[in-house]
Design a protein around this nucleic acid. Sequence first.
DNA 1: CTAGGAGTTTCATTGGGTGGAACACTAGGG
DNA 2: CCCTAGTGTTCCACCCAATGAAACTCCTAG
Lengths: 284, 284
Amino acid sequence: MTAAPERHPDSAGPGTPAAIRGKRPKQGEPVIDRALSLLAVFTDRRRALTLSEMARYADIPAPTALRLIARLVAWGALERLDDGRYVVGVRLWEVASLSPRGHGVREIALPYLEDLFEVTRHHVLLAVRDGNEAVLIERLSSKEATEVAYRVGGRAPLRSTAVGLVLLAGADTAFQDAVIRQPADVEAGVDAMPEGQLRRTLSDVRRTGVAMIRRSAPSRTVSVASPIFDAQGAVAAALSIVVPDGATPPNVLAPAVQATARAVSRNLGFKAEVSAGVRHLAQA
Amino acid sequence: MTAAPERHPDSAGPGTPAAIRGKRPKQGEPVIDRALSLLAVFTDRRRALTLSEMARYADIPAPTALRLIARLVAWGALERLDDGRYVVGVRLWEVASLSPRGHGVREIALPYLEDLFEVTRHHVLLAVRDGNEAVLIERLSSKEATEVAYRVGGRAPLRSTAVGLVLLAGADTAFQDAVIRQPADVEAGVDAMPEGQLRRTLSDVRRTGVAMIRRSAPSRTVSVASPIFDAQGAVAAALSIVVPDGATPPNVLAPAVQATARAVSRNLGFKAEVSAGVRHLAQA
DNA sequence: CTAGGAGTTTCATTGGGTGGAACACTAGGG
DNA sequence: CCCTAGTGTTCCACCCAATGAAACTCCTAG
């Protein structure tokens, strides 16, 4: 399902040993890729960029970048600020909001997330898997809630987050193996799991329908996550709640999270009995 | 504003220097525009399309469409389903989430919208202006709330919605005039305002900081909206609440909506006193 | 079996894309 | 003041990436 396990091809150019040619590794990249790489230069930290910044980051000559950007602006993928800088446009956001795995699940899940949020008053997260990372689709947070590591639209590792574990446990075994074989991503505040324990954990997650992760940075928190299933019975997303460590015990949270996840699954067309067999509440 | 300003590819030669050619070059549209038009074929109703559907809607020959789509898929702008159909990809959504006027305002406003939502339990909307329409950035709705016309990512007219009026009132006068001169968009359930009344209404909205619209379809509702200001004192977005007609009277809702909008404005860096002068609560 | 539609590959042709060069402009720095 | 360095922009001759008709492979319906 994940179309491109490969990283971005646009960065392949500079590494090419074209030096032997004696000729400069000139162009030769499809225009679309260049245009898309111009979109990809925007990050959480860099939301407004000048022409030359964009050209530099995307490694495209200024005149060419200008021409491409002009088209993107005309369409609305980018917008130009008064000071001349460019930002991602509303039009692009509008199209992107049609992404089934983006706003799609969100749209259906939101009311249920709301409920869970109101009852608990803690962070409620919704994530889907893209490649070997989890992408945060939604996050509800009260203004007073504890600090949390990830923002909506951001990415989180699969092995060291509750939603990540749920998504990983729901993936096909071939993919799981590939991820497990990779060196564990070192992340602050979470203990890296050795392979054996990770496999056992994933198995538990599949059986119980709940994943739990305790972390100490950026703040001491406990996350409890559950899978959301689509009509085909595949894990479409993961729902989690993040609470300060020491507050409500995880085994009290689990039923609430599970129940909410199930409610969302049902609205996605999932029939619990069909492919899931008997599922129990997590043991106390 | 609306998708593509340029229509025909034959508009290349204004001076018609190609007349001597005698040949009719069919294609000639920039590749980027074609790629973008392939993204634009997705709508609320059509979220998963086959290759030939996309090619047909975008008016691009199948082989060419296939090639372009392949690039888009490789990057993640599109994803391919198991059945071969294409949908908008998470990667695109991810980049789009960096849109300042899209998820940007939303990110800041959400906790406050939450509060308002919890207190009232009615629809809470957040919208920005794009061209001569309002784009819905966020909508919080309880599962039991009344039917509402617009979805997140969708567009709404400026003249006949509460958020629209707020955004219109906050635009520069030249733009306002242009909109007012346009024939009123006929919309079910809302009475079209004659020019004079519209001008008066906009003036009132600017003065009081509140807009109100009553509509009878798809259900009988009352909307109350207030402007959200950015650091420069410009209207960056509009916040509104939609309640069943006959429930809580609008003048009770107004202060809550205004207070919430102000809270968001403050978090966007707006200093109330600087450019707004004294603002009063709407009279009771 | 035929017909038709969707998806894909091939390939000769050509016009859109390219980026160096040159321009205008602004901001420092001496 | 001139001078340098940076940005954004226009110009234009070269040429390779983009193109789409045609052909081919799977399907499914009749």
